[in-house]
Amino acid sequence: MPSLKDLRNRIDSVKSTKKITQAMKMVAASKLKKAQSLAEKGRSYSSGLDSIVKGLVNSSENIEHPLLGNNLDDKSSSLIIVVSSDRGLCGGLNSNIVKAVKKKINELEGKKKSASLVCIGKKGFDLLSGLYEKMFNFEVKYINISEVDYKSTEEIGKKILDSFYKNDFQECSLFYNHFNSVISQEVKVEKLIPYSNSDEADSENQNNIDTYFEYEPNEEEVLSKILPKNFIVQIYKAILESKASEQGARMTAMDNATRNAGDMIDNLSLKYNRQRQAIITKELIEIISGAEAL
């Protein structure tokens, strides 16, 4: 049975933990607002660009471009871009993404294909580097997601594209957390190279196919400029989504932690009071029985 002093100490420490988690929740909530609006704005840009590319790819069947991958037979090596957060304490966000990456790597290894990893976000690198150290063979191993803006995304995207043109890898996929809402984030995998027509045939897209566009200067040139751009923008979108997801996940995780700490404090206080009462009763009995003996 712990002494009264021990219980008091525990209650105090849980109380201070609760204060910290509560503060973290507040911070996450205020950051979330900004991150969410950025992610939503980024969505309109990336989906706009994506719809142009889709329309282009669908409208002309015999366009060839390395990023479309229709003239590649040897798909032996792939690059995996993992977007995670920089810090922990955000629920299962990072472990979910790592799980998905592991699954993918196992799949690739089963097919005797090699893979390289690039991490955006420190946590993903921390979790994966222990397991797959050799796969971090790209010139950039990881960058902190907090330091990334559009310009630096463009730089890293260009580096990745350069190494693709050098034929270092033939496929590229992107793992990130899609921000559904504050309480729900889901791991999404996007295949960036070769450019895949995702199966979401939304109405706007359908519209696009029907319309005949005039392309200036011509289709091929538009495509050859727009595909690399789309690649970078999709990465940037994933970064924005991940940032919003991180704050959302942290907010929920910290909310739960605060609630748990509250429950714990209640339990401990109950124990403390019971024990205090027990001691008082014991002392009373001692006094009374002492008086009776006289």
Partner: peptide, 15 residues
């Protein structure tokens, strides 16, 4: 070169 877009402009994609 610069161009102006108004109502009923033909569908176009350009840089």
């Amino acid at each position: 070169g610069d161009f102006a877009a108004m109502y009923e402009h033909a569908p176009i994609i350009t840089f």
